[in-house]
């Protein structure tokens, strides 16, 4: 197992825990993002932190996105003061958005050159879905953030 494989495994395990905490049956792209943001010391985490996105900030942005989207059809999540689900039972499976993010990551470099930043780049390549909407609501310029990630990768190659 390469260093990157080990890193990726850790990212996915943490994303799975995030999905379970959400009561979600699938690991989605936003769970990967939460996982990256929580991984102290990785390049991906540092780039996210440089625009103020630690794990708590990502979580908050996602909650806002959910609230905002519900409000679009006249539903107030505040009306549902639900107890958090007793921990999800089934192991969450990889969902379509997370799969897509990983595919995009893997397509962005040769296997032996893959780094944490490629995972972040794969997530940021989505223009549609929960992550782009949450980032926009948090006032993050996604294209600019992706550029930062690319700059970091260029820096790492030299």
């Amino acid at each position: 197992m390469s260093a990157f494989d080990k890193y990726l495994h850790g990212v996915i395990v943490r994303a799975m825990e995030e999905a379970q905490d959400d009561g979600s049956a699938t690991i989605d792209a936003h769970h990967l993002l939460l996982s990256l943001a929580a991984d102290q010391g990785s390049t991906a985490q540092q780039v996210l932190a440089s625009v103020g996105l630690d794990r708590a900030a990502v979580r908050e942005a996602l909650d806002r996105e959910c609230e905002h989207s519900l409000s679009m059809v006249g539903v107030s999540p505040a009306a549902y003061d639900l107890p958090g689900p007793s921990h999800a039972s089934q192991q969450p499976k990889m969902g379509a958005s997370a799969r897509l993010a990983l595919e995009r990551s893997f397509a962005s470099a040769r296997k032996k050159d893959l780094r944490s930043a490629h995972l972040l780049l794969g997530i940021l390549q989505a223009h549609i879905g929960t992550v782009p909407r949450a980032l926009a609501l948090a006032g993050i310029d996604q294209a600019e953030l992706a550029d930062r990630v690319r700059q970091t990768l260029i820096g790492q190659e030299q």
Partner: peptide, 12 residues
């Protein structure tokens, strides 16, 4: 996105 959020809410 509202559909996604409603599904999530319905699951919860």
């Amino acid at each position: 996105a509202a559909v996604v959020a409603l599904r999530r809410l319905a699951d919860q």
